[in-house]
């Protein structure tokens, strides 16, 4: 799980171009959206693309994303339980 968390943090930094940031700077328990990292609805769609491309997980209803994407930990737990690759 810890490896996956670290991998996801790096993924977020690269995908969303958080230049000057390292994985250590992202709090595993902090909200990804709004306060915290400050991702928005467009980033949510980009996250869904990452999940599909990298882990073979397709989220059919964007509304489900809200819960799954709440923190790095919830995201990692969801991926661990549902990944196909």
């Amino acid at each position: 799980m810890e490896d996956l968390i670290k991998e996801l943090k790096q993924e977020i930094i690269d995908e969303f171009n958080f230049e000057d940031m390292t994985a250590e700077d992202i709090d595993t328990e902090a909200p990804l959206f709004g306060e915290g990292l400050g991702l928005d609805s467009i980033d949510a769609l980009s996250l869904m693309v990452i999940l599909e491309k990298k882990y073979g997980i397709k989220i059919e209803d964007p509304k489900d994303g809200k819960k799954i994407f709440s923190t790095v930990r919830t995201l990692a737990e969801y991926i661990a339980a549902n990944r196909k690759q």
């Binding site: 467009i42 980009s46 693309v49 491309k53």
Partner: peptide
């Protein structure tokens, strides 16, 4: 497939 909407906008 796997297109990033952030780039499109």
């Amino acid at each position: 497939q796997f297109l990033n909407p952030a780039v499109f906008i």
